[in-house]
Amino acid sequence: MTARATYHHGDLKAALVEAAVAAAREGGEAAVGLNRLAAGLGVSASAAYRHFPEGREDLLVAVGDVGRRRLAERLAARIADADADADAEPAPGTATAARRRFRASGRAYVEFVLDEPGLFQVANRHDRGRLPGADPFGVLEACIADLVDTGVLDEDRRTDAAAAAWAAVHGLAVLLTEGPLRRLPPDRRERVLERTLDMVESGL
């Protein structure tokens, strides 16, 4: 099916978002251009702007939504893996399990940024609020709730705990992708990640 036929069937918006996500994965925010992507799909810029009235920013927000959804899915998958690990004892619902889930979420966050730096860059810079299914912060808040429910974290220390934990792993992820820590060899990077998770867990 040609791009123009796709547009006539009402799928141009989805095609543009798909193309923009691919561009972001390759080159980050700078690689996402509405006119260029429209031309690549064989449609006019005016046709593309009908789906994204505010132009490039609208498209970047749509790409950011995809990135945040994929990040949330990565966090949820790693948490599920931690729960399903045959060697992970004791079972979910205990303090140890809550700690394990919390650490899994932090590790998954950093790993996602390392795997998808371009897409993450757009997701981090362009959004218009939290969306169901595209809310990695909500996944982290659920982990904090687990810590409270199992007695690891006092209720009176819950406020802003998720934000503080988020800031720590986000800062590390950015340093590993855009800052001086990007030069660390893999084994050192792993040690720094574990040390950061240790400090966040102890700090909470």
Rank of each mutant, 00 (worst) to 15 (best):
V192W: 00
P136N: 10
D127M: 06
A48W: 05
A98H: 12
R189T: 07
A142G: 15
P132A: 14
D156P: 07
E201V: 15
V122D: 01
R36K: 08
L197I: 11
P132I: 09
R50Y: 11
L193A: 05
E18T: 13
L34Q: 11
P136W: 11
G28Y: 06
H126Q: 06
L131T: 14
H126G: 07
D127N: 09
R69P: 03
L140I: 13
T196F: 09
F137Q: 09
D127P: 07
A47I: 01
A164P: 09
H9P: 03
E57Q: 14
E178M: 14
L16D: 00
G133S: 03
A168Y: 04
D156E: 12
D187W: 00
F137W: 05
R195G: 11
E141I: 12
A173Y: 02
R125N: 15
R189H: 08
D58E: 06
P180R: 10
L60C: 02
D187S: 04
V200H: 06
A24M: 02
D65E: 15
G151A: 01
D149I: 04
G10N: 00
D65Q: 15
A95N: 05
A23Q: 09
V139Q: 06
H8F: 07
V139C: 00
L172F: 09
M199E: 08
D83F: 02
E89H: 11
A97T: 03
T94P: 01
N124G: 03
C143K: 03
A165F: 13
L140N: 12
W166L: 04
E190D: 11
S44F: 05
D156Y: 14
S44Y: 02
E178W: 08
G203N: 10
R195M: 11
D154T: 01
K13Q: 14
L75K: 03
R125L: 15
Y109V: 13
A167W: 04
